[in-house]
Write a protein that binds this DNA or RNA. Structure first.
Length: 802
DNA sequence: GATTTACGCCTTTTT
DNA sequence: GGCGTAAATC
C-alpha cells in the first residue's frame, strides 16, 4: 500500500525526501504534523532506516503524543522497535540519565523547577543581604538563563553584560551554579546544555549517537534556541539527514530564547538543503486566511509565503466592541451558547494574550452552566500538595537534592523552623555539603540544641526507613507509606476544612494513581519523576471539550471551529511590555497571526475601551489594538465601531503608545507636542479614537504602506465633528460613572442582614452568618452550600439578596 | 516558632 | 479581587 497516497504534491515531496538536509516551510494549517508523521512511516516502511534509528523532536509533550499516535496508525502496530518521538527536553533527560556521569554528576540527578530555582536565588540574595527590591529573584533567574543559553559562564558575566547590578548577578550566578551542582541537580536549561556538553566533550559518544539516529526530524523549528541548535548539529556529525519543519510566522518564543534566525539561515547552516513550501491550507476559510495574511504582511522578518485554500470563503470576521470586560464576556458567551445550540459538536476557543483575562470568562461560563476546559492554571504537577509529596520522593531518590529537602523538612510542621533552617543552610553552603548530611551530623551532635536534634532524628529515621524500603517497593506503595508516615492528609485537613481540602486530598490520591500507572507501564522511579517535571497543563487538555480557554501561546498547534480573540487592545495586545522594539512588536503580530489561524470557520475579534486592570479606579479607556487596524475592512464586519474619521479635523493623528502598567495611561498635550503623561486624565484631552458613533458607518479606508515611525503606525481614528466629540465625551463620562466600584452605594446600606439568603456569582447560594464593619465597608461571612464558609468584603462580593 | 493579619503587587508568554 | 510576602501577635 502506498501510504503517501493522501498527500498533496509538496507534502509528498517532503515525505519522500531522501538523504540530506531539508527545510519545510509549512504555513499554518498546511499539514506539517502530517508530513512528519508520513515521512517517519515512509522511512521505516521503505526500508531506508530501521524505526529505532529515527528521531523526531517536538516542543510539547502533546505534539509528541499526537505524532506518535499518527505514526502508529500508519505503521503496523506492535513492532518491537519504534521510532523515538520525544520533546527536546525528554530526549535530553533520557540521554543524560545514561551519560551524565561523564560530567561529574550522578545519574540520579534531580530536575529543579522554577520554584526550586527561585528558592536558591532567594537564599543567595538573603545571604548577600541585598534588598530583593533591587534584584528580584525572577529577574536574576532570567538573566542567568539568558547568560547560560548564550554560553556565558559566571566569571564572564559582568564583562559580557555590564550593568550596575551585573557584579551582583555574576556572584549569584556563580553560587547558583555551584549549589545546583552540589545538589546533583539540573535546571531546565541545563538539560539541554549538559546534553550538548556531554556530546561535545566525548566525540566518540557523539559519533555513536549520531550514527544511531540516522534520520532526525524537528517540528516547530522556528522555536529552537541556541542550545537546541547546537544539539542538532552534534547529532548530525556523521550525517546530515536533518529534516526540519517550521513557520517563521509562528515564531512566538523569542522571550524564551528561541532564535528565529535558526530557520531563516537554515540553508546557510546546512548547505544543499532542499526547501519545500507548504502553502495550501486545509484548516480555515478563505476570509480568515486573508485576514491573517494581511496582518502578518506587516512584518519584515519573514521568508514570505502566501497561504491559499480550496475551502469556501466563509463568513466575514466579526469585530465586537463591548462597554466593559464583563460585557465582553457576556457577549462572547452568548455567541458560544448559540453556536453550541446550532451545532453541539462545535469546538470553540476563547484566546487571550494574558492568562489573567480568563477569570471573567470563567465566571460567566460557570454562571450559565457551560462547561469549559481551561489551559494554563496551575498544572496538576504544580499543585503544592503534589509537589510536596514528590519532593519526598526526590529526597529519597537523590539525597543531595537540597531544594526538595528544604521543601519538606518542615512540611508537615515538625518543629524545624526557619531560623534553624537558615543557619543550617548557610553552614551547608559554606562547607559545600548537602543539607541532609549536615542534618545527620547535627542530629548526633551533643552541642546542638537537643530539641532540634530530636526533631532531626525523627525526620532522618523516616527518611532512612523509606530509603531502605525504596528498593523493590513499587513507587505508589512507597508514596502511600510516606503519606501515611507523615500524616499528610491529616495536615491538609488541619490547615483548613473546605472543599479545597477535599480537592487537595483528591490530588494526593490522583498522584498515587499516576504513580501506579507509571509503574504498570514499566517506568522507573526516575522516569516517573522526569515526567512530573516535564509535563504541563496543555498535555491534558481534553480534546473533547467544547469550549476551551487559553492563552495565545498555548493555542499554537491547535484548531477550533470558532475562535474568539478577546482583549484586542493596545497595551494588552500588543502587550505594553512587548512593544518597545520593532522585533518585539513583530513577535506580537505573529502571535496575532497564530490566533487568527486557529479558526476553521468563524473568527471574532473583541475589545473594550474599559477593561479594569487591577483594582478599582484605574479605569482609563484603552485604545483598540493596532492589529485590528491591520485587518482589511472589507473582510471584517464591525470594524466601523472604531470608526475612522476625517484625518485633519483635530490635527495630526494621535501617536499610538503602549499602555503603561501601574497607573493607567494617558496623553497630555504639552507645548504643542503629544507626549506620554501617565497622570493625564482622559477627560482633559481630546479622545484618541471614537467608537460607537451612531449611524453613518464608513468603510475603513485602504491603508497605504506603513508608517514606520518609532511610535508605530499612526492611524486615523478621529472624531468627525464637534457633535460627535461631545457625544463621545458624554459616553465616556457615563461609562466612567458606571465604572465606579459598587462600593460607594454598598457602603451606604446594602440592606444585607445576618441570616439573609444571598447569591454570589461564583460561590452560589448561601446564608449570611455575620456582618461587621470594617473601615467604611462591611465584611460579611457567608456559608455557601457549595463551597462552605467564606468571608467576603461586601463591596466586592456583589451579593444578591434572595 | 507558628499563626494571623496587612499590604502591595499584580499582568507576558513556558518546555 | 487574588496571591504571596512581610509584619504583627500569640
Amino acid at each position: 500500500m502506498d501510504i503517501l497516497a493522501g498527500l498533496n504534491p509538496p507534502q509528498r515531496e517532503a515525505a519522500e525526501h531522501g538523504e540530506g538536509p531539508a527545510l519545510v516551510l509549512a504555513g499554518a494549517g498546511s499539514g506539517k504534523t502530517r508530513v512528519i508523521a508520513y515521512r517517519i512511516a515512509h522511512l521505516a516502511q521503505a526500508g531506508a532506516a530501521r524505526p529505532e534509528n529515527i528521531l523526531a523532536v517536538t516542543f510539547t509533550n502533546k505534539a509528541a503524543k499526537e505524532m506518535r499516535e499518527r505514526v502508529q496508525k500508519l505503521l503496523y502496530a506492535g513492532r518491537s522497535a519504534e521510532p523515538l518521538i520525544s520533546t527536546f527536553h525528554s530526549f535530553c533527560v533520557r540521554l543524560l540519565r545514561r551519560e551524565i556521569h561523564r560530567l561529574g554528576y550522578k545519574r540520579d540527578f534531580s530536575i529543579y523547577d522554577t520554584d526550586d530555582q527561585k528558592r536558591l536565588v532567594k537564599q543567595t540574595l538573603e545571604e548577600m543581604k541585598l534588598d530583593d527590591d533591587e534584584l528580584k529573584p525572577r529577574e536574576v533567574l532570567s538573566r542567568i538563563s539568558f547568560a547560560k543559553n548564550h554560553g556565558v559562564p559566571p566569571d564572564g558575566y559582568a564583562t559580557r553584560f555590564p550593568s550596575d547590578t551585573a557584579q551582583d548577578v555574576e556572584y549569584i550566578y556563580e553560587r547558583y551554579e555551584e549549589r545546583l551542582h552540589g545538589s546533583n541537580s539540573l535546571d531546565f536549561d541545563d538539560l539541554l546544555l549538559k546534553s550538548v556538553a556531554v556530546l561535545k566533550n566525548n566525540p566518540d559518544l557523539c559519533k555513536h549517537y549520531s550514527n544511531w539516529y540516522r534520520y532526525i526530524l524537528v517540528d516547530e523549528y522556528q522555536d529552537t534556541n541556541r542550545p537546541q541548535y547546537d544539539l542538532l548539529r552534534l547529532l548530525t556529525t556523521s550525517h546530515d539527514n536533518l529534516f526540519v519543519v517550521g513557520d517563521e510566522d509562528q515564531s512566538i518564543y523569542k522571550f524564551r530564547g528561541a532564535d528565529i534566525g535558526n530557520i531563516l539561515k537554515f540553508e546557510k547552516d546546512f548547505p544543499g538543503a532542499r526547501v519545500i513550501r507548504l502553502e495550501q491550507n486545509y484548516r480555515s476559510c478563505g476570509t480568515i486566511l486573508k485576514v491573517a495574511g494581511a496582518v502578518v504582511a506587516n512584518n519584515t522578518e519573514r521568508k514570505g509565503k502566501t497561504l491559499w485554500t480550496e475551502n469556501p470563503e466563509g463568513e466575514k470576521v466579526s469585530c465586537r466592541r463591548s462597554d466593559t470586560a464583563r460585557d465582553e464576556a457576556y457577549m462572547v458567551v452568548g455567541h458560544i451558547r448559540r453556536t453550541l445550540e446550532e451545532n453541539p459538536d462545535a469546538r470553540v476557543a476563547i484566546l487571550y494574550r494574558v492568562g489573567a483575562l480568563s477569570r471573567t470568562f470563567e465566571d460567566v461560563l460557570t454562571q450559565q452552566g457551560i462547561p469549559y476546559a481551561l489551559v494554563g492554571s496551575v498544572a496538576f504537577f504544580g499543585r503544592a500538595e503534589v509537589k510536596d509529596i514528590l519532593a519526598y520522593l526526590r529526597v529519597i531518590f537523590n539525597p543531595e537534592d537540597d531544594a526538595a529537602l528544604l521543601r519538606i523538612v518542615n512540611t508537615p510542621p515538625r518543629g524545624i523552623g526557619k531560623t534553624t533552617i537558615d543557619a543550617l543552610t548557610s553552614e551547608a553552603i559554606g562547607k559545600g555539603v548537602p543539607l541532609l548530611r549536615l542534618l545527620r551530623e547535627k542530629a548526633g551532635d551533643p552541642q546542638f540544641p537537643t530539641r532540634s536534634a530530636k526533631a532531626f532524628q525523627r525526620f532522618l529515621e523516616l527518611v532512612d526507613k523509606w530509603t531502605a524500603a525504596q528498593e523493590g517497593t513499587p513507587v505508589a506503595n512507597l508514596l502511600a507509606t510516606v503519606i501515611q508516615d507523615i500524616r499528610y492528609k491529616e495536615m491538609l485537613q488541619k490547615e483548613e476544612s473546605s472543599p479545597e481540602t477535599e480537592n487537595r486530598i483528591a490530588n494526593v490520591e490522583e498522584l498515587l494513581q499516576a504513580a501506579a500507572e507509571s509503574e504498570q507501564r514499566g517506568e522507573t522511579v526516575a522516569e516517573f519523576l522526569d515526567r512530573a517535571s516535564l509535563s504541563s497543563e496543555l498535555d491534558k487538555l481534553d480534546p473533547e471539550a467544547r469550549v476551551a480557554l487559553m492563552t495565545l501561546h498555548s493555542a499554537k498547534g491547535l484548531e477550533f471551529d470558532t475562535v474568539f480573540l478577546v482583549g484586542m487592545e493596545e497595551g494588552l495586545f500588543p502587550h505594553s511590555r512587548s512593544s518597545a522594539s520593532d522585533a518585539e512588536l513583530q513577535e506580537e503580530r505573529r502571535l496575532c497571526y497564530v490566533g487568527i489561524t486557529r479558526a476553521r470557520t468563524k473568527l471574532f475579534v473583541c475589545w473594550t475601551p474599559f477593561r479594569k486592570t487591577h483594582g478599582p479606579g484605574a479605569g482609563f479607556p484603552s485604545r483598540h489594538s493596532r492589529f485590528l487596524d491591520e485587518m482589511p475592512g472589507e473582510l471584517v464586519e464591525g470594524l466601523d465601531a472604531i470608526a475612522p474619521g476625517d484625518e485633519n479635523v483635530y490635527g495630526p493623528p494621535f501617536p499610538q503608545r503602549p499602555m503603561f502598567t501601574g497607573g493607567g495611561y494617558g496623553y497630555g498635550q504639552h507645548g504643542g507636542e503629544w507626549r506620554e503623561d501617565r497622570h493625564a486624565d482622559w477627560r482633559d484631552r481630546a479622545p484618541a479614537h471614537v467608537h460607537a458613533v451612531s449611524g453613518a458607518p464608513k468603510p475603513v479606508p485602504p491603508r497605504e504602506g506603513r508608517d514606520d515611525a518609532a511610535t508605530g503606525a499612526a492611524t486615523a481614528n478621529q472624531p468627525k465633528s464637534i457633535a460627535e466629540l461631545k457625544s463621545y465625551l458624554e459616553k465616556m463620562q457615563q461609562a466612567a460613572a458606571s465604572y465606579r466600584p459598587p462600593a460607594a452605594k454598598a457602603a451606604a446600606d446594602s440592606g444585607l442582614r445576618e441570616g439573609m439568603r444571598v447569591r454570589h456569582d461564583r460561590f452560589g447560594d448561601g446564608i449570611v452568618l455575620r456582618r461587621e464593619r470594617s473601615g467604611d465597608d462591611y465584611k460579611v461571612t457567608v456559608t455557601f452550600s457549595l463551597v462552605g464558609k467564606k468571608t467576603l468584603v461586601e463591596k466586592y462580593a456583589k451579593l444578591q439578596k434572595l
